[in-house]
Design a protein around this nucleic acid. Sequence first.
DNA 1: AAATCGTGGTG
DNA 2: TCACCAAGATT
Length: 332
Amino acid sequence: MRANLSDRLLQHYVDKCRALPWRSPPGSPPPDSYRVWLSEVMLQQTTVAAVTPRFERFLARWPTVEALAAALDEDVLAEWAGLGYYARARNLIACAREVAARGGFPTTEAGLRALPGIGDYTAAAIAAIAFGAHAVVIDANVERVTCRLFALAAPTRGDLRAAVASITPAERAGDFAQAMMDLGATICRPRAPLCDSCPLRDDCRAFASGNPERFPAPKAKAAKPVRHGVAQWIERDGAIWLVRRPTKGLLGGMAALPGPVWTAERQANAPELARVRHVFTHFALELAVVAAADPVGEGWWQPFDTLADAGLPTLYRRAVDAVLTERGRIAA
DNA sequence: AAATCGTGGTG
DNA sequence: TCACCAAGATT
């Protein structure tokens, strides 16, 4: 029965075969390793819908790993703006330069795992998808589907890996992994799974239990404190003063509005031009935008008509939008 | 090894 | 509206 599981899953996947730009149809020759790597890094903690258009833009601008390795850091970061988790972009640059210097991607899981920005999941995924390796690929989708198949509430990493390995076929591990992830994204969803449409329903112990959503057990939720920040609006001759954030930490290396470090308490400040609330992974930020006269420190004048090219992360893009919207309202 | 690191979509 | 969470990696 288990021998049929991967076959049925793959057949279901082939029948649907969502047209993703970075993959070729199941069973066809492995796609280009650069495209697989780029898409997998972009997809870390990021939805297919969000990645798809950004992947196309990125690939058109830097078609090869050598081209990406030769790019300016600031250009890559600007192209990444809005995608979040900017350490990925910094690691992407470092990885591209290592790969270009060594003349290509490593073809083994261990070799890939040693590159910056490539962890357990991404190494296994690239090895399986791009190089046909028999790798055990585990992302959040694979974990959820597997936990439900075997009715595992909170397995250890070793037990989970053993369970995934037990259903990974000897051939086409890459197609199998993509089929599992697609199933997890579209049918075996975290909430309200569509068990009636599932090709694995008859194998699923969670379905048999009558309450598949119990598997895996939900993880503990951390409280999300509010922090407060001030951003300075410094405008001159149709341009605005931008700075670059420190390379480490939140929004590291990204373009930004200048301003002091964010604090737990709200700071007394000048009249606000606008205010935005932005939710990060582990805290929410109340950012007040205030007018200031003269630029301080390192930075540059960014003309308003090229602001879209500045590569502002979403927080600051929204802050700028809020000021311009408020200004338009007053003018009207 | 628990904390850190973005953003947008959805049930 | 809002809690949840996504093709995780790093330190």
